[in-house]
Simulated scan of single mutants.
Amino acid sequence: MGRIGIWNTAFLGDAVLTLPLIRTIKAAFPDSPIDFYVRKGVESLFTAQPELDNVYGYDKRGTQKSIFSAMCYGRELAQKEYSLWISAHTSLRSGVIARWTSAHTRIGYNKPLFNNWLYTTTVDRKFPELEEIDRLMQLVKPLSITKTLDWPEMVLPQSAYDEVDTFWSKHIDSPVLGVHPGSVWATKRWPAEYYADVVAKAIDAGAQVLVFAGPGEESMAQEVIDKSGAQDSDRLIDLSGALTLVQLAAYLNKLNCYVSNDSGPMHLAWAQRTPVTAIFGPTVRELGFFPRGEASTVLETDIECRPCGLHGPKTCPKGHFNCMHSITPDMVWNDAKKKLFA
């Protein structure tokens, strides 16, 4: 086997979930260089991954958005002479790029229907029968690979771990709860006052709290801090908007517990075996994108209208938002405190 290209330009969490597939491919073809193609902006997370030779970001929302750009990019990639191309993304744009790479073997999913003309081999994704990692493993079946590796084993640059160790030695002397109230999708956000209640409970119990937020989410974090009544507490550290993606992942690696919505950072946490308390409202565990491992918990309630989409809409279609309101702060705290003080 020669050079291998693996493509998943969906969201951050999807790229993390692709790591078991990458590890499986590398174990089967240890001498083959592997290039990983991800959504532009997340490539820095994977540069230290030992299975990968190169990581490239694709600007699917910017300069490389059009189908014509996809064709041109595919032709450019053809110069790399890939022997194997595996695409975990189902869009037409991804299929066009795969076709124009001219890789000898191109494996993708058999739906949408046009994929059957763009790939040399297609497989059934089995959605929603399988969890997402297992769906991704369908893509190796045509290669007769019998041993699969089902954990991401994310590896970050050593400098990121060192930076966090320094922070911990200066600021941390107790179990640490991390909270991340933001999400790209509004209906995935547990109410700020609920997060604030959990923050207050954690501080009262003797824990320290780190508040995280990505670019554009700072106001959400500030609302939680303000409503917690812990604005002036030295037990709370506000890291909202202060970290790169790699730094965020390294901080999550050190937490005793991470409370999060169904989001990309949630996957960064459990993939590093950080105990996670995940709050699922419009999405459900059965969709297959949940945190794995014994230290992970998905909190959700049985409401007839769930799920209301693969990602969650901007507003509640029913107007009541009961899927999130019915998950109480006590429910979350009762789960999180077991992990914090284990």
Rank of each mutant, 00 (worst) to 15 (best):
R125P: 01
D204A: 15
T63D: 14
V55M: 09
A48F: 07
L245M: 13
D232P: 03
E218V: 15
R99E: 03
G182S: 08
T9K: 02
I107P: 02
G41Q: 07
P20Q: 06
Y58T: 06
N8M: 10
V211D: 13
V179G: 04
P20M: 10
T146Q: 14
V199L: 13
I172W: 03
D232W: 11
I145T: 11
T297V: 15
P175V: 10
G312N: 07
D124K: 13
P33W: 02
Q208D: 13
G108P: 03
K40N: 14
H267Y: 10
L130P: 00
G319N: 05
T166Y: 12
I107G: 08
S233H: 07
G281K: 01
S233P: 08
S296P: 00
D59P: 01
L177H: 01
D35K: 03
N116Q: 13
I97Y: 04
K338I: 09
H180G: 10
Y109Q: 05
N54H: 12
V96K: 02
A207Q: 05
S44Y: 03
A103R: 06
S263V: 05
I133H: 02
D134A: 15
R189A: 01
A28S: 03
M71K: 08
W85V: 00
A249F: 12
P307D: 12
G319M: 08
L130M: 08
F280R: 00
G62S: 03
S233Q: 06
A196Y: 01
D31A: 14
A27Q: 10
H320L: 11
A196S: 10
F290L: 12
P157W: 12
W117F: 14
D302I: 04
K60L: 10
L236S: 04
P191T: 02
